[in-house]
Nucleic acid binder design. Structure first.
Lengths: 202, 202
DNA sequence: CCTACCGATCGGTAGG
DNA sequence: CCTACCGATCGGTAGG
């Protein structure tokens, strides 16, 4: 036992959050019942309501405390790299190594888009923007003979590269053996880098 | 009335498919009830089972007959363009103009990934691969001083550019007014083109 | 944090 | 293609 500062109530809350988080990722929001969550968390279904007002509020709490951005951003922050190429290559591989090749990581985000029509987006935006801004600034100020691309667009394209890698991977990964999977990330990174940097040698 | 070749049963089937399609896109699979679908289609709930064995089979039929790829691919096929740049710019704008700026188009695909864990992916792959192959070949054989990128990776990156545009748009679109939205597609296309082509002038 | 339970709604069937 | 209905399960509450 390392940390004992959590109250019992807080530990139970986290157990519920853990259970619900995994179930939402695995099968979506509507298909997950309070009874499934309770069983996985090891308590009675009614006890969940001591910690969350409703299923909806619980989902909102999970978004705010477990959104994939909260895993992605610390990794990006700790990525070394003296110039754009080093940073992007390092970030891409560290992200994929630590988050895994399967797109489950994005599922919570995708569920919010499809099952809630993105209704929490502005809430999340407000919460995350202060943490994202320094990263955008850092990305933009890296050396590398960058073409004339606005900082926000650059950040969006960088993020988009991961999303597209994961989602096309989900679409193809189960249907293809390896010919397209192998080194796909490296190719995506190459295309992004060539797309963003001014070519040094013709 | 243009076409009268459809039987009444077929027309009802299509009405059910239309209703379910729109509901699944708008709120996902599990959150959509057979009663909602029946009401929107104008028939009794039980009557749906004259056309589909189960809710699951109905979703499968919608995937096979209404998957976003079936809208995307004809647009790509009819896009003119003598070289890579013309083709990609034309394809990007025609797609977005005809499909709209909002990512609803991808929702059926995203629902399948999240709520069905991509279990229909290989089925869809089998059905679509014969139509996709010519497009990959065409894309790859376009003029444009292309860098050394395998055809499959090129096609995947091209597709990924749209996905990332739509999904990052869904994430940002509701929270931002215009500063990042304006010309975002053009920037994405530029990055892709620079990323894929050999630079002509330093 | 539990047992017991609520009304509502679910996917699907019987039978015509 | 409908009416009528099935058992099961849903999110949530009462009361302790």
């Amino acid at each position: 036992m390392i940390e004992e500062t959590q109250t019992k109530g807080e530990r139970t809350r986290q157990a519920v959050l853990d259970a619900a988080h995994r179930l939402f990722i695995g099968q979506g929001y509507a298909a997950t019942s309070m009874r499934q969550i309770a069983k996985k968390a090891g308590i009675a279904p009614a006890s969940i309501y001591n910690h969350f007002d409703s299923k909806d509020k619980m989902f909102e709490a999970i978004l705010l405390e477990r959104h994939p951005f909260l895993q992605i951003m610390p990794i990006l922050s700790s990525t070394q790299g003296r110039n754009m190429e080093e940073f992007v290559r390092g970030a891409a591989h560290t992200l994929v190594d630590q988050l895994g090749h399967y797109p489950d990581i994005l599922n919570l985000m995708l569920t919010e888009i499809v099952e809630f029509q993105g209704e929490h987006v502005s809430l999340l935006f407000q919460k995350f923007i202060p943490r994202v801004m320094p990263l955008i600034q850092r990305l933009y100020s890296l050396d590398g003979n960058m073409r004339d691309i606005p900082p926000f667009v650059l950040a969006r394209a960088f993020l988009g590269m991961f999303f597209s890698y994961y989602i096309t991977g989900a679409l193809l990964g189960q249907a293809m053996p390896a010919e397209m999977q192998a080194n796909a990330l490296d190719h995506f990174v190459d295309i992004f880098l060539h797309g963003v940097l001014v070519k040094e040698t013709a």
